[in-house]
């Protein structure tokens, strides 16, 4: 019973996600169409030459037609070719070369950020008004208010330039070590917001009647924290994980630039600057996909931990 409902729910969500993606794609197309400039910004090119190029890539056709062709191609896994960055290289290829390192850093940052953030917040809540609590609050304020690229600069100055512990810029010969500073700079915002949020959630839960009742049973403090407080505090925390992950994606653009990481973020920025339409659309699409995927995943997780939602879904 439960499995069937689960599958049905996932199916429904998938269809909704696909529709959302389709709409996003269309809006992207529209926006790029109205953006000034063209992918072929070489001033030496004559009007005639430009016209030929436009014709060659089908850019002279009406917007609707181009959109349909794009979607048709996309369904076969073809995201078009790059116009200017790496002329005629397929976008799929370009993305598949840059995506792994970006995903790696993004995942590292979100895992490190949320885990440390949650632990920090929980311990601060349990020792409310202690020295540790003030310290955690300090870290949170710092992390939320200092932009990631400033952190990136500080970290590189201290750990790479002064003490030479990590490579200053990305180097493929030291792939993992090169990701540590970017991960740290990237995760700090997530870590700080999660710490602050977990602390206040936890404090709120500790004041609840059901915690009083559980405590009145005579269970130990440890049992109370593990079985009741953390579990209930986790529910709202999980909901903020999704938007924070999105923040992380945005932050990765800057961080990749700062550390010269050959990731998708760097490619994205370059493509936008060069008006390389297909690359921009391709990467935006991948970002949207990751975003929607994250929301979906978090939603499922949420259902797993909160029976009210789980059952409500089953009912529908």
């Amino acid at each position: 019973m439960e499995v069937i409902h689960m599958i049905r729910y996932i199916g429904k969500r998938t269809i909704l996600s696909l529709i959302t993606l389709f709409i996003i794609l269309f809006i992207l197309f529209l926006m790029l169409n109205f953006m000034p400039g063209s992918p072929f910004n070489d001033t030496k090119m004559s009007h005639e030459q430009l016209k030929i190029l436009y014709h060659e890539y089908g850019l002279d056709r009406p917007l609707a037609e181009r959109f349909l062709i794009y979607v048709k191609q996309m369904l076969t896994g073809n995201l078009g070719v790059s116009y200017s960055l790496q002329t005629n290289a397929t976008v799929t290829n370009m993305i598949s070369h840059t995506l792994p390192i970006s995903v790696q850093i993004g995942l590292q940052a979100s895992v490190v950020g949320s885990l440390i953030g949650i632990v920090l917040g929980f311990v601060a809540a349990l020792r409310k008004n202690s020295f540790f609590d003030s310290m955690a609050t300090g870290i949170s304020i710092l992390g939320v208010s200092v932009p990631s690229f400033v952190l990136a600069l500080c970290f590189s100055y201290i750990f790479s330039y002064k003490y030479n512990l990590f490579p200053l810029l990305y180097s493929s010969s030291e792939a993992f070590r090169s990701t540590i500073l970017p991960t740290l700079s990237l995760c700090f915002f997530t870590l700080a917001s999660i710490a602050r949020y977990s602390r206040s959630e936890m404090i709120e839960v500790m004041e609840k009647d059901y915690i009083r009742l559980a405590d009145a049973k005579g269970i130990t403090r440890f049992q109370l924290v593990c079985r009741h407080i953390i579990r209930n505090a986790m529910i709202p925390i999980i909901t903020v994980l999704a938007p924070l992950t999105v923040d992380l994606m945005a932050g990765s653009l800057v961080i990749e630039k700062a550390f010269s990481i050959p990731g998708m973020g760097s490619l994205y920025i370059n493509a936008i600057q060069a008006n390389d339409y297909n690359v921009v659309i391709g990467i935006s699409f991948i970002y949207s996909l990751m975003f929607i995927g994250t929301m979906f995943f978090v939603d499922l997780l949420y259902g797993l931990i909160d029976p009210r939602i789980r059952i409500a879904k089953r009912g529908k």
Partner: peptide, 12 residues
């Protein structure tokens, strides 16, 4: 306790 609506752990 006074309020049975809030005295039981909602996740258990």
């Amino acid at each position: 306790f006074q309020d049975p609506m809030t005295s039981l752990d909602p996740t258990m």
